[in-house]
């Protein structure tokens, strides 16, 4: 009896590559469960790297790469990883991937590498990465884990890119280093020094959270 049951389970048609359940992994962190604005994780790098769009974009790509691959490897190894040392194993996987990103940036994007300096290394301590490994990849199959990591990484990325967009535009009057106001003939655009300092990031982040919560109606539980 037990045997036939097992066979039936195997015969069940495979879940669609992007089923409703899986779509939720990707879509949720973009808005309703955003790692930065709702879970308030990864704030440090959201403040530090977002003065200009270019390094922010590189940072977003790096975090996405690290998250997807660390989730993949952790998920593949999840039944082999001894529970007692799982945190340090996750850390070792993340740290290795981050070092790899750092080396690649050093070789092929030296300017950005110098600008980001310690913040690439600090991806290791970004709570979003380890949070997803511990909460999801340790208990789910590789494909689901990749989707989950991708969702959270995108949730992180769009926020820091949005913050960087306003900080570079208002703080330096530029976008990707291109003097946007000068090109439309407004050369006296008053750049705002506050936007270049971390305080500017806090203000923009606060405004984004305000708009977001006004729309979703999300209220923190006490």
């Amino acid at each position: 009896m037990a045997e036939t049951l097992e066979k039936e389970v195997i015969k069940k048609p495979a879940e669609a590559l992007l089923s409703k359940r899986r779509k939720k992994f990707v879509v949720d962190p973009l808005n309703d469960d955003n790692p930065i604005t709702i879970q308030v994780l990864g704030i440090c790098s959201a403040l530090a790297v977002t003065t200009q769009l270019k390094p922010t974009l590189v940072m977003a790509l790096s975090v996405t790469f690290v998250m997807i691959f660390s989730s993949l490897f952790t998920s593949i190894l999840r039944n082999l990883i001894p529970t007692r040392v799982r945190i340090i194993v996750q850390l070792a996987i993340i740290a290795s991937l981050v070092s790899l990103v750092n080396e690649v940036l050093h070789a092929y994007a030296f300017d950005v590498y110098k600008q980001l300096s310690v913040f690439v290394g600090l991806i290791i301590t970004n709570c979003i990465v380890m949070g997803r490994l511990e909460a999801f990849a340790m208990g789910n199959k590789p494909y689901d884990s990749i989707l989950d990591a991708f969702g959270s990484a995108m949730g992180y990325s769009w926020i820091i890119i949005a913050v960087a967009f306003f900080r570079e535009l208002l703080g330096s009057g530029k976008l990707f280093g291109f003097a946007i106001f000068e090109s439309i003939g407004w050369s006296t655009f008053p750049t705002n020094g506050l936007m270049v300092s971390p305080v500017g990031a806090f203000i923009i982040l606060g405004l984004i959270i305000w708009v977001q919560r006004a729309k979703t109606g999300y209220v923190e539980q006490h």
């Binding site: 290795s96 080396e103 092929y108 030296f110």
Partner: peptide, 17 residues
């Protein structure tokens, strides 16, 4: 793996510097 990557990327890093 890391030392392999580091060794492999060294020439490109030197060039970038």
């Amino acid at each position: 793996l890391l030392s392999l990557a580091s060794e492999g990327l060294k020439p490109a890093q030197k060039r970038a510097e």
